[in-house]
Design a protein around this nucleic acid. Structure first.
Length: 311
DNA sequence: GACCAGGTGGCCT
DNA sequence: AGGCCACATGGT
């Protein structure tokens, strides 16, 4: 038995039959703290929870390092496992043929390339802040920024069986540069942990012109002016209207927060990549036509645009 | 050292 | 309502 196996005290095997690609999920730009170890184990962080998950021999089996109770009550929902993505892809592909000329085949190829993606049920506060940070940054820069904020204002997570061999770990989202020798995991800071950070503190953390935006978000949450829990009950348009009251949250970021932080799969954010995709579809945004699945199709296309050579 | 990045707010017609 | 443009920082 290998050393790495011995250290694993808790080991649970779960079955996932639906579309599920750890590599794509970790590297699709909706969560920014996923990592991959050299042995193909992936790590996800949500709140104070950390999950290591690895595909094992039978095709639909995965090894996870949490209890069965935690898997059932938390991670299954996090990965949106109650939704049948393969069926959604079928439903969507039946609409492709109705598209004129190149658009249908373009969407078809995108959906194929994104097979295995899922819309994660992330914490809405974390999504609010990380997508404010995301504007005018590339994915490695976003990941680095989120990581830095977590190290500065989050708290250290005491991880089960913490590995001693963190150095041979490679991250899917590369945390650039030199600080990377440091081991240990940090939680994403809560509103309480950030409430004392001044705008200047946030600038010092490298947030640049987004510092006052994040500061405004903290203020609105702490004052109760923005109640993320209560906003779960709003319909999509009302939720959107509340989100854009935060400085630095415009249409695109509000749609991202709705989709990734509130599970509103009818929302399809339009960023620079999707804008290029729309141009390729003759200038008309094809996503709203997919109704409740618009956001899922958008994710497939986003993945396609960012992971294939397009000229 | 340009040029760009999962945009937005504030101005200007 | 719609068209510019500054904005901070880091990757490529």
């Amino acid at each position: 038995m290998k050393e790495a196996e011995k250290r694993r005290e808790v080991s649970l095997f779960v079955t996932i039959r639906d579309d599920f690609s750890l590599e794509k999920i970790a590297d699709c730009g909706q969560c920014f703290r996923a990592r991959r170890f050299g042995d193909g184990t992936y790590l996800f962080i949500s709140g104070d929870r950390v999950l290591r998950i690895r595909k094992v021999r039978p095709e639909d089996k995965y090894e996870v390092d949490c209890s069965g109770e935690e898997w059932d009550s938390f991670w299954k929902e996090y990965f949106d496992l109650d939704r049948d993505y393969s069926r959604i892809r079928e439903i969507c592909s039946s609409q492709f043929s109705e598209e004129c000329d190149g658009t249908g085949t373009f969407l078809m190829k995108a959906a194929e390339s994104g097979e295995g993606l899922r819309i994660l049920r992330q914490n809405s506060w974390e999504v609010l802040i990380t997508f404010i940070l995301s504007q005018r940054k590339n994915m490695p820069a976003i990941a680095a920024s989120v990581e830095k904020l977590s190290r500065l204002y989050g708290h250290r997570l005491d991880v089960r069986n913490d590995r001693k061999d963190d150095t041979d770990m490679s991250r899917v989202l590369v945390i650039s540069g030199k600080e990377d020798k440091e081991t240990g995991l940090y939680s994403f800071p809560t509103p309480e942990e950030l409430k004392c950070a001044s705008e200047q503190d946030l600038r010092d953390a490298g947030l640049g012109y987004r510092a006052p935006y994040v500061r405004d978000a903290i203020d609105k949450i702490m004052s109760g002016e923005l109640d993320l829990e209560a906003m779960q009950n709003l319909d999509d348009d009302a939720l959107f209207d509340r989100l854009v009251t935060v400085k630095g949250v415009g249409k695109k970021v509000a749609d991202c927060i709705s989709l990734f932080g509130f599970g509103r799969t009818g929302r399809s954010p339009v960023d620079v990549w999707i804008d290029r995709a729309i141009s390729r579809c003759g200038g008309e945004d094809p996503f709203p036509k997919f109704g409740e699945y618009a956001g899922i199709m958008q994710q497939y296309v986003f993945y396609y645009m960012t992971h294939t050579d397009n000229s």
